[in-house]
Write a protein that binds this DNA or RNA. Sequence first.
DNA 1: CTGTTAGCGCTTTCAG
DNA 2: CTGAAAGCGCTAACAG
Lengths: 338, 338
Amino acid sequence: MDPINLKKLAEILNVSVSTVSKAFRDSYDISPETKSRILSLAKELNYQPNPYASGLRTQKSKTIAVIIPEIANNFFTQAIDGIESIAQEKNYHVLIYFTHEDYTKEVAFVQHLQHGRVDGVLISLSGDAKDRSHLDLLGHRDIPLVFFDRVDDHAKTTRVTTNDFESGYMATQHLVEQGCKKIAHLFFSKDLSIANHRMEGYLQSLHDHRLPVNEKLIVQCTANHVTNYGLIKNLLKQKHRPDGIFSSFEKLALLSFEACEELALNIPRDIKIISFSNIETAALLNPSLSTITQPAFEMGKEAASILFNALENNSVSIADQKVVLNSTLVKRKSTSRE
Amino acid sequence: MDPINLKKLAEILNVSVSTVSKAFRDSYDISPETKSRILSLAKELNYQPNPYASGLRTQKSKTIAVIIPEIANNFFTQAIDGIESIAQEKNYHVLIYFTHEDYTKEVAFVQHLQHGRVDGVLISLSGDAKDRSHLDLLGHRDIPLVFFDRVDDHAKTTRVTTNDFESGYMATQHLVEQGCKKIAHLFFSKDLSIANHRMEGYLQSLHDHRLPVNEKLIVQCTANHVTNYGLIKNLLKQKHRPDGIFSSFEKLALLSFEACEELALNIPRDIKIISFSNIETAALLNPSLSTITQPAFEMGKEAASILFNALENNSVSIADQKVVLNSTLVKRKSTSRE
DNA sequence: CTGTTAGCGCTTTCAG
DNA sequence: CTGAAAGCGCTAACAG
């Protein structure tokens, strides 16, 4: 069955192609009768304009791209949910790309997106990137870019984050309040500003509570979870093993749980754990993990709204602003009972 | 900065547009020197063909759509991961659409996709659909469609599922083996063939183990989790409350856990629970939930591979076949110790 | 081996 | 209020 197009509609109705086209756009400048004739036939024949033709003509795709490190992650899942909910509202389409923390993929995706496939881009950076200059390409092409969560602090565009410094501070303090003296910190990549902010909160909190900083308790993890598991086990086998762990990444907390189990360390008796995490399923969750939970869904919505706003107002360059949402500290058994 | 296009490349190199175009496609029929001159300049200027122009011309978008009920769900998260991994390999783009179990949205998405935006569609049906005729539209437009998990058994196209009957049978049997006599079944929507297959497995298992079928223990849930919570609580407050629950949907198991907690029922002592679930984080998981785990990632890969195969071979109509992968029964404390 | 040309389906001046 | 015509950027005959 051949697809129906403007030309055919025009032929059937004995009007010109441009008249038909206008019927869908310029509601003025066309007689009401003609318009309704056209629209009703279009509906009857189930006409939809060809997106590639109008995209080519108008240089608008009604599509955005979302570039994230991974999807098997509750934070990103919820963020995508938020993004898609706004996109549906605005009648936009959403393309997804996963970098799997691979910088070269991030560069490749961005390269591919600079030629009209999308009108705008939402990105959460991969962990192992140093040079962010590939992102400038989008700016050169007037494609608005909004960062969320894993932002580039130096980028001159909108960044949506959470209060990571404060969260790191709160998390650490929470462990201190439970009597922890030797608090370890697990983080992922020094190239991520959010990781740095969280660590700064941790350090400040230790300082304010007059606890010493022990380099051996600060563990930089990798994109490889087998390696990470080894690192965490080593941490726990140290002579002066920590009595608390603040993990800035959900997966690292999971690995810590597993490592404790293997080493027969009781949580929360021997060691207390708090982690950034967006696991929602409290009923199924191990009751010994306090969490810092980010408002992921809201972040997705916020970032998408800002982007769509820019697109709709043709304000090509997105303001150099930082939007900060607040995470929530969820205390659970691990720490609320001594 | 103006985007670079074929015409500009041609001008700079003093060749015709078609020569440039050919350099990227027909590696034959063009002199090696010209070709390399063109390609190197293209790289230097960071040229990328405009996808909307070539899409319009070739009627190929190098894009597929994935329509799923929701994303905040471990099964779908893993499936998308699998789909995207194949798409990356094949250099395809992936559009995502969430129906949130809303049939009207499913229809609207499919309507929008019949005019060239995508080359193919992967779908997992929304729960409340009866009439699947909207999907025929895609067939009429020669857009291949592959179902995964929530398939339409009557569709004449490829369907990728798991062995749901057998899984339902195994799950029920597992509870029987632990001594359960009054086994409830929670399911979601009679319109979903997979739900029906799972239930058939449940019924067959009861029958084979000479246990009576009690209609009051078979609960049809809804898309609304507050309602579902009420239904489950009612189930548990019945005079002859069940001593085992087989849930065919992860979220329903979570609600059961919560309801048990509220009603002070001990799991697994008072009641044992087994559920379809793709929660991966064993270390964090409550140790009292046995699960039927579907190979979601593999299903995504399988469905995507079949679709891309069809696209690449221009075999527009996808064979009327059913691909069945096997789920895994994961026994945990709830049932492995009496 | 290279160039000319028509046209994918749509939007948008500009004339009438 | 309606229509003719140009052209978005690219591809694919077809000539040369």
